[in-house]
């Protein structure tokens, strides 16, 4: 650090003490270090550039940037959008391994596994790896449950959190669990659940 003092050369003010003393403290009358002054002015120039670029030039910030980026995502997603949501079209999609994989990821990350267990074998919520269903085993029944919630929303609705396409993917994964056959877990509550094996 002390070498910085030599950059003051030229002013003739190197380490000359001012003739004041405050409780024994004296002060040198050294010039401002040039690198420090440069830093100050560069930051001022940056500030002017920043305002000019983002508020009067092409720079995008805030809502403008968000609008552009979300529009790009929406356009990208539109390409993968599921067709008409009939029971038949959903059943046709329900064997697509890519959708099953996507649904499996969502099952873990949306929070389904908190109540239905990481493997879908049930904890607070019922076992999904069996043939018993409270609200029916049609694709549209499951999609409806995920979209709008069940059991006074203790199973929370996902319509605000997930795109319709992802809700379908989640439903497709759930169906794939049941289709794969019975796995032991939370016992079925036969007063509420009905035997409704997946037939498609």
């Amino acid at each position: 650090m002390s070498s910085t003092g030599s950059t003051d050369a030229g002013g003739g003010n190197i380490d000359r003490e001012r003739d004041h003393s405050f409780d024994g403290i004296t002060e040198y009358d050294n010039d401002l270090p040039r690198w420090w002054l440069a830093m100050l002015w560069i930051s001022v120039v940056f500030a002017i550039w920043y305002v000019a670029y983002f508020h009067f030039g092409n720079g995008q910030i805030g809502v403008d940037r968000w609008t552009k980026e979300t529009a790009a995502i929406a356009a990208e997603r539109a390409k993968h959008q599921t067709g008409p949501l009939t029971e038949e079209s959903l059943r046709a999609l329900s064997h697509d391994p890519e959708r099953i994989a996507r649904g499996k990821t969502l099952f873990g990350t949306v929070g389904c596994s908190i109540c239905h267990g990481p493997e879908g074998t049930g904890l607070i919520g019922p076992n999904l790896c069996d043939r018993y269903w409270i609200y029916g085993s049609n694709m549209t029944d499951i999609v409806e449950g995920i979209t709008n919630g069940r059991a006074n929303n203790v199973m929370p609705p996902q319509k605000a959190a997930l795109s319709p396409d992802d809700i379908n993917n989640l439903a497709i994964y759930v169906v794939s669990l049941s289709r794969a056959g019975f796995k032991p877990g939370k016992p079925a509550d036969l007063t509420r659940e009905k035997d409704n094996p997946i037939t498609y």
Partner: peptide, 8 residues
């Protein structure tokens, strides 16, 4: 002594 009065 303080390095620089002007800087302060």
């Amino acid at each position: 002594p303080i390095y620089s009065y002007r800087l302060s």
